[in-house]
Amino acid sequence: MTNTKRRTFLKGTMAAGAVSAAIGVGLLTPRMVLAAWPSAAFNAESVDAALNELLGSQQMEESDKIDIRAPDIAENGAVVPVTVTTDIANPESISIIARQNASPMVASFVLGSSTEGFVSTRIKLGKTSDVVAVVKANGKLYSTSKEVKVTIGGCGG
């Protein structure tokens, strides 16, 4: 066997090996790697249930130390920029909830010890909704909400 042929042969076997490995990983990943992904919280249809599943409590304290920046009117509900900033000391996580979405839990950002109380992302809103930012700090939940009016929904369609 010449060197080139051998190389092609090796490539072929390696590719096949990679594919089967990928299939195996694909099947196992959701359970193994994503043990942390809280499906019950993201599938919950009520805000209280989602909060209980994710953060262990539904008791939130209104706080003026959280600022939500989002448009008053979103023309396109599929892309709504949301920025949450908080001055609360030692924030552990920032969660974003869209009260009127079919599944209200949008995202939860778990912050490292050196991470500041700031996250910015873009979310989908099915219709006009209160966007709630929930900050977990010192074992308590603090929240602020802001209404975003949507002219074209971002889910379904």
Binding site: S103, M105, V106, T115, R122, K124
Partner: peptide, 26 residues
């Protein structure tokens, strides 16, 4: 950052297509 976790984002389906994420750390 240098092997230390600074952010873990858990997302549902309501994050927009082609997601954008920004955060700050010291």
């Amino acid at each position: 950052h240098n092997g230390n976790n600074v952010m873990t984002a858990l997302w549902g389906v309501a994050i927009s297509k082609n997601p954008y994420l920004s955060f700050k750390f010291s």
